[in-house]
Design a protein around this nucleic acid. Structure first.
Lengths: 212, 212
DNA sequence: AGAGTGAACTTACTCCCAGTAAGTTACTCG
DNA sequence: CGAGTAACTTACTGGGAGTAAGTTCACTCT
């Protein structure tokens, strides 16, 4: 009864050891959840390890550093976000609708994945070290999507000023990120549709102007 | 000769004790410089204290925490930046020029104060705690300046959708911040004038559209 | 001048957390 | 079964944020 026989545990055959890929996934899931709840600074590696039921050095063996683990979370979440927006854009009927749908998809996704959004906001934590560069590359995919959309909207017969396109794409990326932050502080108040409509109105005619 | 007579020091009467206001200024200056060079994470409170020639607890007595000290730097730098942009806007001849001049002033200031800019970028480090809220209030001044400009450009005889104005102001603030970050990574490549011109073209007609 | 008072300042810690060295346990394949 | 390797742990170091408790200076007020 009081003995600590290992056999007693066999009723629940907890797999102590798992292969690397599975553990990495467990760690990533736990990290995503905890980073999302407590933020980068507020999360300790011990905490994540404990949540997985594993010791800290194992986490270091698989992800190298706290930044590395955080970056892995960030990449995965950004990829999901990019997918959501891409799908919306590709499913649209015309360029104007593509832009609007993309904005709606962006704000809606962030609404529906608040913890994901917290992680993305904390991206700024990686302002130093090699992780910072990697984080920028992750964001660059997004800017490139926007740039592509902008290019499609411009006439094919004109020489396109690629630098201007980059400026516009970076601007839109920055605007949507700030709007998302503002919105969460504001109690989620303007709806995704209202935000998308306003952005649409603000930008559409300006994109026209860039043609000449 | 080899004696450590205190009298020998009297040739350079180093004021060991200074009054609080003076010390706070010294600390703020040192913190601004070091935070600007090494970033928030890379800076230790001991380092700042040593730069001032003082012990760490004194810094804590005056600024409360690392976040508090960083926030003090941030506020001062943001205020300078706001002044620079305000001056440019107020000195303009018409609304269109005000907008353009404001953008140029923004990018030029950041060019000329790279350490200040580093600190502002690191603002994201304060994503948790009471300092985060304070940091947002500091930024809000900027958004309000933009909102005022937008209002001035709208016709006085129409009911103004205040929510739309906030959206636009937040967008512009986000766009200019991201452009500034991108620009430093890009080797400072598009000139302030080119950035301002492109933003001007992109936004001007859109602001018109918001009237109806 | 000398005692009293408060502000400026220091020494010497605690605690927490990222990261690591070195070893141990369990699974697999001959 | 034994050898090899991948999964995993215990037990530590180092460094930096924050603090408790005391010390020294400068300035009043008799």
């Amino acid at each position: 009864m009081t003995s600590t026989t290992p056999a007693a545990d066999s009723a629940v055959p907890v797999k102590r050891r798992r292969d690397r890929a599975a553990r990495e996934r467990e760690m990533l899931d736990a990290a995503e959840r905890i980073f999302g709840e407590r933020g980068y600074q507020g999360t300790s590696m011990d905490e994540i390890a404990a949540a997985v039921g594993v010791s800290k050095p194992l986490v270091y063996q698989y992800y190298g550093s706290k930044d590395g683990l955080f970056l892995a979370c960030l990449s995965r979440l950004r990829a999901q976000l990019l997918d959501a927006v891409s799908d919306a854009v590709l499913g649209a009927s015309d360029p104007e609708d593509a832009m609007y749908s993309g904005f709606v998809a962006w704000f809606t996704f962030l609404d529906e994945h608040p913890r994901a959004w917290s992680v993305i906001v904390d991206e700024g934590m990686l302002s130093a070290g090699p992780a910072a560069q990697a984080a920028d590359e992750v964001r660059a995919d997004f800017v490139e999507l926007i740039a592509t959309m902008v290019r499609l909207n411009l006439p094919a017969d004109r020489a396109i000023d690629e630098e201007q396109i980059q400026i516009v794409a970076q601007s839109i990326s920055g605007a949507t990120e700030r709007l998302a932050i503002w919105r969460t502080q504001n109690g989620g108040s303007p709806t995704p549709e209202k935000l998308a409509t306003t952005l649409q109105e603000l930008l559409w005619r300006g994109l026209d102007a860039l043609r000449g």
